[in-house]
Design a protein around this nucleic acid. Sequence first.
DNA 1: ACGCTTTTGACAATCATTATCAATAAGGCG
DNA 2: CGCCTTATTGATAATGATTGTCAAAAGCGT
Lengths: 140, 140
Amino acid sequence: MSTAKRNTWQREAVRKALGSTEGFISAQALHSSLRDRGSSIGLATVYRTLSALADEGDADSLQSPEGEALYRACTSAGHHHHLICRNCGLTVEISADEVEEWAQGVAAANGFTQPQHIVDVFGLCASCSAGGGGAEHPIS
Amino acid sequence: MSTAKRNTWQREAVRKALGSTEGFISAQALHSSLRDRGSSIGLATVYRTLSALADEGDADSLQSPEGEALYRACTSAGHHHHLICRNCGLTVEISADEVEEWAQGVAAANGFTQPQHIVDVFGLCASCSAGGGGAEHPIS
DNA sequence: ACGCTTTTGACAATCATTATCAATAAGGCG
DNA sequence: CGCCTTATTGATAATGATTGTCAAAAGCGT
C-alpha cells in the first residue's frame, strides 16, 4: 500500500506515556514528561502522534477551560470522569452514574440520539487551595 | 465606588451585535461583523467586553472543537450547559441542577475548591437522526 | 465645566498548535 | 546484507487566537 504506516519508537513512546497517565494530559505536558524521562522526542512529533491516535480512535480529546487540548488514552472499558486540579494537575477518577442517566435523559428529551457527553470537573485540590493561591477569580 | 462601571457605546454595540446573532460566534467574527457595519471598535475591546459579559452572566461561552472561544447572548439567566448536534450544529440550552449539585459535591468530597465543570452533551438531533447519516464513529 | 478614573485601542507579547523542509530511518527487495 | 524509496522526525518559523501594555480619550460625579 502507498499509505504504509511505519513503526517508530516515538509512536510507541507516546502511546505508552499516554497509557500510563492518569486522566487527561496536554500535548505540552506529555512532551515535557517524555523529555524529563530522557526521551529526545520532538514537540511536533508529540502533537502529530496524539492527533493521529485521536483520529484512529485510540485516544480521546477534550478542550480544557483554558483552551488547551487534552488527551487521554482511550480505555474502551470503563467509562468514568475526572476531577482535575488546574494548579498541580492532580487527577482523581470519579464515577458518575447520575450524570450518565441525566445525559441520556436530556438528550432523549430533546430528540437527540447517539449521545456522548463531556463531563469533567476542574478545580483546586486541597493542597493547592490551602497553599494560598487564592488570588484567583472564580470564572463561572 | 471605585469599581464603577461606565456605559460606553462600545459595550452596547457588542451587546446588541451578540443579541442579534443566531447561535454562537467567535470574538474575531463579532469584531469583523461590527467593523463591516461601520463601527470603529477595537479588537481588544471586543474580547474584553465579551469576557465581561460572560462573567456577568449575560453571555455564555464554549470552546469550539478548533479551540476558539465562542460566545452567545445568554437567553436564560444563570449557569447552564449545552446539547449540541455534532452534525448540523444545532445548540440547545439545558439546565442541569442535578449536575451542578453533583459537581459541587464530588469536588468538595475530594477537597477541591473553586470547582468549574465542563458538561456538554453531543449527539445527533432529531432531524439529523432521521436523515439517516449514521456512519459516525463513537468516540467514547 | 473640571478632574479623577475607567475604558479604549493600536500594538506587542504570549501561548498553543501547525506548517515547513532538510535529514533520518523503516521496510521491502534484490 | 546493503540499497533505495519514502514515511517520519524534529528544529524552527509561521500562524492564529487571546491577553497585556500604556498613552490617549471618553464617562460620571461634583
